[in-house]
Design a protein around this nucleic acid. Structure first.
Length: 191
DNA sequence: ACGCGCGTTCTAA
DNA sequence: TTAGAACGCGCGT
């Protein structure tokens, strides 16, 4: 298990990818995307999870990671990229099934990937689409999303227009909720 | 501001 | 392993 770190200019967050590189197939299996306020947190997590940094001697691996980074840089510089669709065109497999194990959570995921940059939805709307009134449970499913941004849980708002929580935090003026707002602004979504 | 609803996770047998 | 209590990026009143 390895990690790759970068920071898109314009976004107030560092991005940390946790992945495995399969040498035989030259593909990357992406397990997790984590966002951090500052770089120190990244060092902490990588130690705890016993992750090795990217093997910069492996050109094929490095190349895929830089392509992924480019997509994020483009996206947050205003060129609105469908990250889920574009990353699938690279030699990357998204490891969503290990976290989205229940049928319920998988339904939420399937709906989320249809929400494109600049659009928003609500927990209520997801509920009516998947035939459930468990709005809080939908929130929990979004929270367990292993790859935020790529699976766009940040585009889900409360029905009354409030921002709602993000990455475990739900009170105003937390770094996480401000980040959610910032991302949506960069995506030029109507709030 | 309070009660509700319901999938998931935690906890104690 | 299994029931049941507790917990939540919410909703309606």
């Amino acid at each position: 298990m390895s990690y790759y770190h970068f920071k898109p200019p314009g976004l107030q967050a560092h991005i940390f990818l946790k992945y495995d590189y399969q040498n035989s197939t030259k593909t990357i299996l992406l397990h997790e995307l984590i966002m951090f306020k500052d770089k120190n947190e990244i060092v902490k997590i990588s130690k705890v999870k016993e992750l090795k940094p990217t093997d910069t001697s492996n050109m094929a691996e490095q190349e895929i990671l830089e392509k992924i980074e480019r997509l994020f840089v483009d996206h947050f510089s205003g060129k609105l990229v469908d990250l889920f669709a574009e990353i699938q065109k690279l030699n990357v497999e998204l490891d969503v099934k290990s976290k989205y194990k229940s049928e319920f959570a998988y339904n939420v995921l399937e709906f989320l990937i249809k929400v494109k940059p600049g659009e928003t939805t609500s927990y209520y709307e997801i509920g009516s689409q998947i035939g459930s009134k468990a709005y809080r449970a939908i929130g929990n499913a979004c929270r367990s999303n292993p790859i935020p941004l790529i699976v766009p849980c940040h585009r889900v708002l409360k029905r009354n227009g409030e921002i709602g929580g993000f990455m475990g935090k739900n009170s105003d003026n937390e770094w996480e909720t401000n980040l959610k707002k910032e991302i949506l602004m960069l995506e030029k979504a109507k709030l």
